[in-house]
Amino acid sequence: MTTQHTAPRLTWRERLTRIDVKAMPYALVSPYFILFAVFGVFPMGYTLYASLHAWKIGNPTREFVGLDNYTFLLTEYDRFNWSVVNTLGMFVMATVPQIVCAMMVANALNKRLRRPLLWRMLILAPIVTSVVAVGVIFARIWGNEYGMVNGALELIGLDAVNWQGGRLESWFAISSMVDWRWMGYNALIFLAAMQTIPKSLYEAATVDGASPRQQFWKITVPQLKPILIFTVFVSSVGGMTLFVEPLMFAPGTGALGGGTTGQFQTTAMVLVDILRTHGNYGISSAAGWLLFLVIGVVAALNFLVVNRIQGNK
C-alpha cells in the first residue's frame, strides 16, 4: 500500500528519520549530563544541605543548626582562617612567577628554533611526574638536614634555613613544587596562543622601529589577554584547592595538619581533616562551601587585575 500522496504524509521510514534527527542529539549528549548531574550537581546541592546540619559519621540523627557550622569555622576554629591565609599566600607565591616565566619561555619557544618538538618536550617533562612524586623529590631538595638547598647555602657560607618551620619559608618551598610542575604546561598554552598572532603585526611594528622588547610588551602581551585570563582562572581554582604538595612536604602521621602549627595547612587539608579524621559531615560541608566562595572571590579579583594591567598598557 502506498501512502505517498494521501493521508499519513510521512512514511514509516521518514518518521523514524525524523525521530532520529530530533532525539538522537540528546541521546548522544545524555551520558555526559546524566553523570554530571549525579556526580557534579547533586553533590554540590547535597553539600549545602549537609552544611546546615549537625551531622557526624555513624550517627543517623541530623539536627538542623542553620549557619552554626559556618560561624564555628569562621570564629572558633582558628585553623580554618589561617588555612585560607596560607592557601592565598602559596597561591600568589606560586602563580605570579610561574605565569611570568611561562610567558618568557613561550616567547623563546615561539622563535625559529631547530627541533621545536624536543624543546617543547623538555619544557613539558615535569608533567610526567605525579604530585606525590614531586613531593617526594622536593621534600628531599628542601630538606632541613640533608637537603640540597641547605647544603648549597652552607657551601657558600650562609646559614641553613628551616624550610618546614616558618610560614614564608614553607610557602616558598611548596610553591616551588607547583611552579616546577606547571610552568612548562602553561608555557605551551601561551605558545599556542602566540602562534595565532598575525606575523604582519610584528613586521609592521618593526618597520615602525619597535625593538623586540617593545614588541613583546605592546603586541604579544595584549594579544595574549584572553588566554591569560583563562590561565589565571584555572590557576586560581587549582591554587585554592592545593592539597597534595603541602601534604607531601612533611610526610608522616598528622601530615594533614600541615606542619607543627599548621603553618602550611591549606583549606583543602582542613576540609579533609575534618571529614576523614573527625568524621564531621556538617562542618566539612560548610568548609567546602566557604572554599567555593573564596575561589569565586579570588577568581573575580584576578579577572579584574588581569584586565586592568592590560588596560594601562
Binding site: C101, M104, V105, A108, L109, N110, K111, R112, L113, W119, L122, I123, L124, A125, P126, V128, T129, V134, I137, F138, I141, W180, M183, G184, K199, Y202, E203, T206, V207, P212, Q215
Partner: peptide, 28 residues
C-alpha cells in the same frame, strides 16, 4: 632585516631555554 630578527633566536634565548630545560629535567 629586523622583522626576521623578532623570530630569530638570540644567544639569550638559547641560554635561557637550556637553563629552563635543565631545571625541568634535573629533578627527574
Amino acid at each position: 632585516n629586523e622583522s626576521a630578527g623578532v623570530f630569530a633566536p638570540t644567544m639569550m634565548t638559547r641560554i635561557g631555554l637550556i637553563g629552563v630545560s635543565i631545571l625541568s629535567v634535573f629533578p627527574l
